[in-house]
Design a binder for these strands. Structure first.
Lengths: 222, 222, 222, 222
DNA sequence: AATGAATGAGCGTTCATTCAT
DNA sequence: GATGAATGAACGCTCATTCAT
């Protein structure tokens, strides 16, 4: 009947967690499994199986499955924004920058595609707070692309009638799609980089003349 | 768009299968929930909630959660291939065809984006057999795109050095990405169609002259 | 890269839960197990065993183990306050009221001792919010006791030097203790009621004369 | 209070058992945590947190969580019986003895309430054997109280119609309850001792006259 | 056409305990 | 004396699915 409270136990000194040497290995396994099966389609047992340890042991390395997802996603975005920012504020024409932007966006896929895929496809399943935290990076990245494109339009490098917002979304859609087939397709990432940079570059640039259609339009067809 | 009905496959087993009048409504709800939360992230309770019925009642309309996914996916691909095929074998330059291909690929997003998204993002979670069955449609579709592009190259409309495989994957990546933001972005689908068709068209076409860079390259660039 | 939010799915109509006929039976079993083993010492399997159903089936009747605890606790306090309030504001001397208070406080133990024990011993393990909600009842009850005792003191029925707060806590300590042995001891609750009422009544009342000690003090000892 | 040391039982097995200097500190932490959260509600991590050491390190000091509980309980009962026995067999009237019994029963709460609370509330979770071992002490204590009360009745100090068993249980209920609020309430233990001794003393004693009710019974009553 | 009740299987998580160092 | 790493066992809970009505 007396007052009754849960005293939060004078947690005298919270010891800082120990280094946990295998941590990188563990979250790489998580990245792989999440990439392959999707977050909700993957079980922690799947991750443990990859590592050859018991499922319970995973929790020595991450606090929860969602926590693991966050760690993976963080490594999935890490660097993208900074590198893009550096390119955008560096020297060169807008077209050059865009090319370099695309190449640098694709290059992590050679060695970290699992992380990137998870970031792209599974970050929606993060708990609200960390989703917002991580979402900032990707919105920032969009901004960098858009700024470069706007710069190109302003300078007359790119078509004046370009919808810059749609262009950004289109470009990112194209390059991000790579993450989902760079495994199964046998192509090399820098091959893709070059092709896409050319494709996008041409699609975006000012056409020297409007009547550039092939001279003798094929009569044929219906 | 092309006609599309949820024919409950007139099973010759049972005489006069009951009408199941609400079936379309039910699998639309499933499409919505799967699109929003992902197949494994969605529960049958979520679907029932949207419909205002009890979870057990769903099983009057579909045989299993995976069965529902298959139904949704089927409606998500339905027609794409046939329409694309018709365009490809129809009249016009390769560039025209490519433009129409893109437009027709995007147009279902106006009223069936949930189905398309589920097909694109969740078909991997189908049981092996139906995944293969459905995978055929998308591989077929890729073929149609690739054929048109190859045709363009052959005719000299498109750049001779184009990697047609990568071009297809890039184009599909770009247009498929739309499904994932056509909800949150305020753009109209035909706006997107036009812009993307132009972007791709220019990116793919033969450049009339190689030295098409802007005459006085901007010295500047910060 | 676009905005990504978890839309809370237009949960069109939340159906109200069905009656759940066996619910009382289920939470009685929970009360029993919690009383016997303590909340954290009890497993949901223990409860299911008592009922002869599967453990998972319990969750058709309560939302969580903690939810079950709350239900049990609610039934453990239910009525106490109201009845006490009625007695306090009814007719009679303070001594009469105190007697009736004690009797009415003990009487639920004849048929609901499990619920009362759980309320007394385990409510501390409720989640913060419901603990506070339920704590109100017990603080209210203390008040009623204290008011009656203060009334007795004011009227000269009870000793003027009585520490009313301590008296309340002492009385409640005594009567609440019953819950923990009314099972194992063979005594009848109304027997206990009568004895305790007398004990407390005398302990609290004004002594007619101060020199009331037994005339011939026993020499002996030992 | 009586002397009380945590003698680590000079195990004849191992030569010169290591001192385990921090042992008292460790089991005091355990007592605190068990008291605050209950045995099953407490984790060994909680104990380690209080101490600022790692959880695994605890096992240098006690063999198991249940072992720790036993150590705590032992210190929780230690001395009670002996002291009570000494009082009962010492000089004085039964009333005097009862008063001293109550005071000596409460006094350990000033500096060892955690141990006492754990003994009172958690001993039920000891493994069968040690529970029985420890249970003897408390049954012995009850006996001492009961003997003194019977003595009082025999001598005419206490009411002849007193149910001695119920009186004991009531008294112990009252005094043991203190352990559960001596933390949150601001009262001093000897204040409580005095009040309770008086309360019980009066409740138990022979009344000089039966018609001791206040002369003019209050008409009123609200 | 729909639902209340129940369940089997499995999942994420906790936690006491061990042990080499 | 203490700890990092790991684990076995169990626990609370979820959820797709079934079935009599």
């Amino acid at each position: 009947m007396w007052a009754m409270t849960v005293v939060p136990l004078p947690s005298s000194r919270r010891l800082r967690p120990s280094p946990r040497r295998r941590a990188p290995e563990i979250i790489e396994a998580a990245a792989h499994v999440f990439a392959e099966r999707g977050f909700h389609g993957a079980t922690t047992q799947d991750i443990a199986d990859v590592l050859g340890i018991r499922q319970a042991s995973l929790y020595y390395y991450f606090p929860s499955k969602e926590g693991a997802l966050e760690l993976v996603c963080l490594q999935g975005v890490a660097g993208f924004f900074e590198v893009a920012k550096a390119i955008a504020s560096g020297p060169g024409t807008a077209a050059d920058k865009l090319t370099r932007l695309i190449k640098s966006h694709l290059s992590p896929l050679t060695d970290r595609s699992d992380f990137v895929r998870v970031f792209l496809n599974e970050r929606q399943h993060l708990p609200a707070e960390s989703r917002r935290r991580i979402g900032k990076w990707s919105r920032g990245l969009e901004r960098v692309f858009e700024d470069v494109i706007k710069e190109g339009v302003r300078r007359g490098e790119f078509r004046a009638d370009l919808d810059t917002r749609l262009a950004v979304l289109g470009i990112l859609g194209m390059v991000n799609a790579v993450a989902n087939w760079c495994r199964s397709e046998e192509v090399a990432i820098d091959r893709v980089s070059a092709e896409f940079a050319r494709l996008i570059g041409d699609g975006v640039k000012t056409r020297p003349r409007r009547r550039s259609r092939p001279r003798r339009a094929p009569r044929s067809a219906r």
